[in-house]
């Protein structure tokens, strides 16, 4: 098979270099110059852009991004593990079907789900309206607060965590569990010494799939934070909307470096490079 189909991979190399590597080169160049849009005719080499990285608004946006992403990822790990483990241990005949129904919300439009979340986070919303017609008066006013953003992030990205932890749990050989019980471990010890270590791969890939979009997304903080909370994604988006490609590119390059670190981590963990699915 080898000699015949080797050339099938060549176009993919070219494709990935053109669309995945060259943009980074352009962004790197853009962050060292001062020009208008993509017009390089009046470009001047400058290092001024880097001063922007230390201004307080950028630092706060970066800190916010890290803070929200870490909190959301940790919560997703705890909740996601419990849900995935409960399904894994359940006695349903078709666990895969239960799993897919559980993550069904993932298939409806993300922006619409966030908009719906925002609506019910207002003090007067459709659910309180229905409840008040039934004589129950409750009120919840968290729209525009950090809590709202964190809830939005968790609600949007937790399916990814559940799915990848569940996949890892599913791959565990049942005879290992039997062996652990035969050798006298209690249920709790069996969990911590056998099952948990074997499922860390799922936690790592789930965390990457939750952490990265939480850190760099701009729609969720914009809608649920109602402009009070700026993450780094919002700052980049604003720069590109104002045609300030230089600062936007610089910030994008910084994010990219963080992500390349994550890619490196993944390739360390799994030599075949197939952790992600």
């Amino acid at each position: 098979m080898n000699k015949y189909f080797k050339k099938l991979a060549i176009p993919y190399f070219v494709w990935l270099y053109v669309l995945a590597i060259i943009p980074f080169v352009i962004m790197a160049i853009l962050s060292f110059v001062n020009n208008e849009g993509l017009n390089f005719s009046k470009a001047i080499f400058t290092l001024d852009n880097f001063g922007y990285l230390t201004t307080s608004s950028t630092v706060i946006a970066f800190m916010n991004s890290l803070f929200y992403a870490v909190i959301a990822t940790l919560t997703c790990i705890v909740i996601g593990y419990m849900v995935a483990y409960a399904i894994f241990r359940s006695h349903f005949k078709n666990k895969f079907l239960v799993m897919t129904i559980l993550i069904l919300p993932m298939w409806s439009n993300m922006l619409l789900r966030i908009e719906a979340l925002k609506n019910i986070m207002e003090p007067h919303n459709i659910i309180t309206d229905i409840l008040s017609k039934l004589g129950i008066h409750v009120s919840l006013d968290i729209a525009g607060t950090p809590l709202a953003v964190i809830i939005g992030l968790i609600s949007t990205y937790i399916p990814f965590m559940i799915l990848s932890i569940y996949t890892a749990l599913e791959k565990i050989d049942y005879s290992l569990e039997e062996a652990a019980l035969d050798l006298g471990l209690t249920e709790t010890k069996k969990f911590w010494k056998v099952i948990f270590p074997l499922s860390t791969k799922g936690i790592v890939s789930g965390s990457i799939m939750v952490f990265l979009p939480c850190m760099s997304g701009f729609a969720i903080p914009e809608i649920l934070g109602q402009g009070n909370i700026l993450l780094i994604g919002n700052v980049i988006d604003q720069h590109f909307r104002n045609m300030n490609y230089n600062l936007g590119s610089l910030l994008a390059v910084v994010i990219l470096i963080i992500i390349l670190g994550a890619i490196f981590l993944v390739s360390k963990f799994d030599k075949e490079g197939e952790t992600l699915l």
Partner: peptide, 26 residues
């Protein structure tokens, strides 16, 4: 193989906003 799998992971793991901007620039 490792080389191309590393490249293959870039679109997958890259932040949407960075991918989007990169493609827009190209």
């Amino acid at each position: 193989k490792r080389h191309i799998m590393l490249l293959n992971n870039i679109p997958l793991l890259n932040a949407d906003i960075v991918s989007g901007i990169g493609l827009m620039l190209i």
